[in-house]
Simulated scan of single mutants.
Amino acid sequence: MVQQWWRNLSPAVGAYVMATGIISVGLHLTGNDVLSKIFLALAAIVWLVLAADFGYGLLFDRSRWRAEAVTPPALTAVAATTVLGTRLALLGWHAVAVLLLIVAVAAWPVLLITVIRHWHRRMPGAAFLVCVATQGLSVLTATLALEDVADGLMPAALMLFLLGLILYVAALVHFDFTQIWRGEGDQWVFTGALAISALAASKLVAWHRWTGADHTALRGTALVLLTANLLIYVVLLTAELVRFRPGYNVRRWATVFPLGMTAVAAMSTGAATGIHALHTTGKLLLIVAVAVWALVIAELIATRVIAADG
């Protein structure tokens, strides 16, 4: 019975941790610390379950582990770990955040290379997880540097940021653009990858050692990325309204994550660039993200109730 439960756990569930964790960050940035900690606890519990599942598959069920490792959702293991680590770093739990960074860095190259080797021509939005996972490392590394844990980590954060942009372009080449209209939720990673890239850029902008032309270039890059993020956000939202797709799907957590990440990216970019309107925009978008998170939870519960009655 326990073994069957492990086998039924999809790697795509990692997007739940990503979505819940980034909303926790957003709530922290808006001063809602009690609610933020509740979301953090929810994210941490599921992360622990997924970490146990990952380890179980690696040690005792290698065939299943290999089959899942070639799929883009496998990279949620890295992305979820970095999002959780970022929130814990902001909470002051620096030692745990560093440990999570080490875990994510260890898993990242293995999963990244495995996933890219199995890319095909027309990929769903999950293809952009190669960028999200890499930028997640950049965000966590930069956050620890800004928290004065290790100032020397910032150059590494910059290199990861640049690599993440390259991987975004690579994923874009393979992306099936019809997914915008018929995707089941993960098409939103198309813009979520830009959002986390903008967040990483804003963290770089905030570092005191970037001055002059370097600071100007990073500031401009952050604003360009956020602008592109918001434009694609509108396109995807329009597609959702035109072709309404109700009902629970595990991929819907890959919708909630970009909604929350866009909100956090807007607030962080606003703080780093001094554009206060972006912070206001981020606060409004966070309300949307929380509402959609609650909707997906409600649909999940409804699905389970119907399944139990059946």
Rank of each mutant, 00 (worst) to 15 (best):
P246S: 04
V46N: 13
S36C: 05
L140V: 14
G125R: 07
L194T: 01
S10V: 00
A106M: 13
M18K: 07
A239E: 01
F39S: 04
Q135K: 00
E240T: 00
G310F: 11
H28Y: 09
L88A: 07
L91I: 06
G21V: 00
E299Q: 07
A277G: 15
D309H: 14
L165N: 12
D53K: 12
W5Q: 14
V2P: 03
V296C: 05
H174Q: 15
V205L: 10
S24T: 10
A43K: 10
T191H: 13
N249I: 04
A308T: 13
T141S: 12
D214C: 02
V173Y: 01
W65P: 00
V34S: 10
V25T: 13
F244H: 08
A69K: 03
V264Q: 10
S63I: 10
L241V: 08
H276P: 00
A170W: 07
R62K: 14
A79C: 07
G21C: 08
R252C: 01
G192F: 09
Q4A: 13
Y56D: 09
A106P: 15
P246G: 08
A239P: 02
L231Y: 08
V242I: 14
G92E: 12
P11V: 00
D176A: 06
A51S: 07
M154N: 11
A156S: 15
V256E: 09
F257A: 03
A69C: 06
G270T: 04
V78N: 10
A289V: 06
L204F: 04
A95K: 09
W47G: 04
V70W: 03
A277Q: 11
V130D: 01
L172H: 02
A307M: 11
F257Q: 01
A198P: 09
T211W: 01
G260P: 05
V288Q: 13
V46F: 14
W210F: 15
S63K: 13
Y248F: 15
R64E: 06
L204D: 02
T255Q: 03
I113V: 14
T238Q: 07
V296K: 07
V242C: 12
V173T: 01
